[in-house]
Design a protein around this nucleic acid. Structure first.
Lengths: 336, 336
DNA sequence: TTGTAGGCGTTATCAT
DNA sequence: ATGATAACGCCTACAA
């Protein structure tokens, strides 16, 4: 590789000292605009690009943010990366992405090693790492600024970006009510996930608001297709069979559809089925699922934005709640 | 953040000079093994982690590799990243990942800026960037070591890791022919992806070999489910409806299955559908897709390995070809 | 408004 | 086999 263009080259060409160039680079005040112009010109003429390592070594910022994940879902990871990268690009920062080990204390070790070695200014921590108590504690102890994406528990120490599970569940329920359904079954999510409770209470709130009998059938699920299938069978073999079933996630909704097929029920003509998440399976299953879209890209974009504010010492809200979206597909229809 | 542990701390604890610590860090010869042990001990006792920026500033290596992509497929990108990261982890190197703009000369600018700023030692260039002539030329001019993943033209200047798209497509087509299909529709991949052409020509070669009418219906797709759906609709509403459709990737094949369902066609009894890639979606759709397993992860792993050899000055083969595999599932069957 | 000197944490060079 | 010292390219602190 040829000798790199340095700040000295720029300074020489613009006829100023390197300190002045540095000021222009960092948008610092105290440079006459005419001088600033000359420097800018020199920079682009030489297509000078400041060395990130040199900056992070000399300054107290590295202009590098980090993103850690330990997630098996390609689509989710891809969206998260894209959102965070886009925000960083806007701010002329770089993003260092790392996939981490998710078994035990290796996680903490993994992340801290990355932070130490790369000198990132801060971290976007994505689920499930964002709910890893050990990791969170370790980061707080190190005073590494970080923003959590969709954490289970919203602590007050680090900012979090979330969506409104309760409100979304309410909207979905209202959609079903609007279609004329009076008996709506609910499949609750995994008991360990806080979002499960939120989604159920959204469901119940909508029913209450509609003045509907609160005694609607509810089954416990565990967020996988198999538990959705079982719950579906139980709900659909009741004497007072519901005309719609709202499952707390898409996988369970897919299970419910299977149960309906077993029993010879047509979806959505005889049974409406609704999911939650808008994961890949939602558009693959037949009929495609009416569901709630979690704005993954936007959440990551926002998280990176908050992190930027955070490392620049600005105040940021503890919780940022982004809008979800009701996605209408073919699994829901008029009540029979 | 608390004061970082530096090489001086380690040197002090081990009772040696920082140069000796540096030698141990870099596995350089000329250190008594007893001394080496003491240093190693000090390193782990202090959980010292050398600063990447400092190393890249001082040395002629940064211990950082880069990976660039400009690809809309989440699954592909995810696999590529995972493979390259794993290889880097093995070699105790870090990987800097960047998504690039894919419009015109911005691409070159984007990549070069990244290289300059981060000081990466070399680059893994993934498709479609690996076939971007301008970019390749620019990288060669800069003398940036790089390895290309699945490039369309295999040049001699930079090493390439490929699979045999043409041969694989031929095998798949032969599979369909063996099942007795005589009218086979083809959904071509994204026009910017070099593999698209190769897959099509493999398809056509097999037909020619079978002495079949070459005038089989072909539709253009864009590697996503939506374009597969559209292409499927067009193919399946022809008067001379094909009994099998071979889509250039799994996402589009999933779209074709949707189209079939819309039209009330049973897969595979009335229509066989074949995909390519063996991505996640292939085993999620119903029926599960017969497809070609592209060893994406392994290819990226290999590419990173070659790059490591390259930056260390070792000789590497110009072309590394990895084996694909025909995966038979339930979406293909006897011609009706 | 601009410039000078010193240092960030490591590797390279040249001693010893 | 080991160490002292000068880079690397930039920013911080202070001076002019």
């Amino acid at each position: 590789m040829m000798a790199r263009t340095t700040i000295d080259d720029v300074a020489a060409r613009a006829g100023v000292s390197i300190k002045t160039v540095s000021r222009v680079l960092n948008d610092e005040p105290g440079v006459r605009s005419e001088t600033r112009g000359r420097v800018r010109e020199a920079i682009s003429a030489l297509s000078y690009r400041p060395s990130l390592p040199a900056r992070s070594l000399a300054g107290r910022r590295s202009n590098l943010l980090g993103l850690v994940y330990a997630n098996p879902s390609a689509n989710y990871v891809f969206d998260v990366q894209s959102g965070a990268m886009a925000r960083c690009r806007d701010a002329h920062l770089r993003l260092f992405i790392q996939s981490c080990n998710d078994r035990g204390d290796e996680t903490v070790e993994d992340v801290l090693a990355m932070v130490d070695q790369t000198h990132v200014d801060g971290l976007v921590v994505t689920p499930p790492l964002s709910s890893d108590a050990e990791l969170i504690a370790a980061l707080e102890e190190r005073r590494v600024p970080f923003v959590r994406l969709a954490p289970d528990v919203v602590g007050t120490r680090s900012p979090a970006v979330v969506m409104d599970d309760e409100e979304a569940a309410r909207e979905m329920t209202e959609h079903l009510l609007a279609l004329g359904h009076k008996r709506i079954g609910f499949v609750e999510g995994h008991p360990d996930h806080p979002s499960s409770r939120l989604r159920r209470s959204g469901f119940e709130a909508a029913l209450a608001l509609a003045g509907l009998d609160e005694d609607q059938p509810v089954e416990q699920g565990h967020n996988d297709v198999a538990s959705g299938l079982k719950a579906g069978r139980r709900l659909l073999t009741r004497v007072d069979r519901p005309t719609a079933i709202f499952a707390s996630n898409d996988d369970m909704a897919a299970g419910v559809i299977q149960a309906a097929r077993e029993l010879g029920l047509d979806v959505p003509r005889q049974l409406s089925v609704a999911g939650f998440d808008d994961s890949q399976i939602a558009s693959i299953v037949w009929p495609a699922l009416t569901t709630i879209r979690q704005p993954t890209y936007d959440m990551a974009f926002a998280a990176a934005g908050l992190l930027i504010d955070l490392v620049r010492g600005r105040q940021v809200p503890a919780v940022t709640r982004l809008d979800h979206q009701l996605v209408l597909r073919n699994s829901t229809g008029e009540a029979p």
